[in-house]
Amino acid sequence: MTEQGTLFDDDFLKKLEYLKVVSGQMIPGHMHGEHRAKKKTDSGIEFADYRQYVSGEDTKNVDWRTYLRHDKLILRIFEEDADLPIYIFFDASKSMDYGTPLKFDYARKIAAALCYIGLLNQDRVNLVGYADGIAQELSARRGKNQVWNSFRFLESVEPRGTTSMEKAIKNFFSARRRRGLVVVVSDFFDESGFEKAFDMLRYFRQDLFAVHIHSTDEAHPELPDEVLLEDSELGTTERIKVTPALLDAYAEKFEEHCDQVGNYCRKNGWGYVRATTDVPFEDLILRVFRQGRFLG
């Protein structure tokens, strides 16, 4: 691993290796020897098991020797690798270009980490940067050798424009996609609301894992008495007279917003983690693992 940009430096890569080891310990049997769950079919190469023949089934795999010896129709069953499509949607709108560290960099690191783990597990990983629709997309990749392509792609994306997750999901899944795990890394500041996009995922029977990130001062802003608030995405402004009550109300509203996203996910049996950008990204990834969905 010698190719690297400023975003994914040596330190980042070391943390990825650490995540690789830790994730294997947390979910035994999943990461060892790049093992993937296998589905049993009748057309594979690798023998897996026998089962009783049921009338009407194709006799191609009947084990005739057993039939001659025991007078029973037994079918041979074979195993076949079952790869998991992972669709990583990361928010590349202008609202992510905020905070210290930048929410967008934080989101890209999370996407990179999840992508890395997915590729190690021989999953098919799609990377989609979205804003007001799909901004940039890296189509499904599989295998460890795709790691650098993925990182380069992530480094190439710039935050810009407004947010419409609904439009991005709709565009992406309008093409035929296999069922898989959709990971959305975003601040979920979406004028059109996140619910429609999530409903669409449910419609496409996709599993969802939402990673909600925000900076600390977004939750508890410190503003002067009178301020002209400018929306980073729309560029519109509004004069506000700031009071402690207003700040408290905003903090409440922000919590309410986060709870809405979390509750929506939990209600649909989806995963949800929330973190501020001052939390080390590897800790956040471990929290993702602990929820047991990403590698399930």
């Binding site: 992510m96 905020y98 500041f189 301020v227 002209l228 608030l229 929306d231 905003y250 509203k253 922000f254």
Partner: peptide, 15 residues
């Protein structure tokens, strides 16, 4: 008033 850029005024507007 000081001009201050926020990621989104979505929540501010609602509030």
């Amino acid at each position: 008033a000081r001009r201050l850029v926020v990621p989104s005024r979505l929540l501010w507007n609602r509030l």
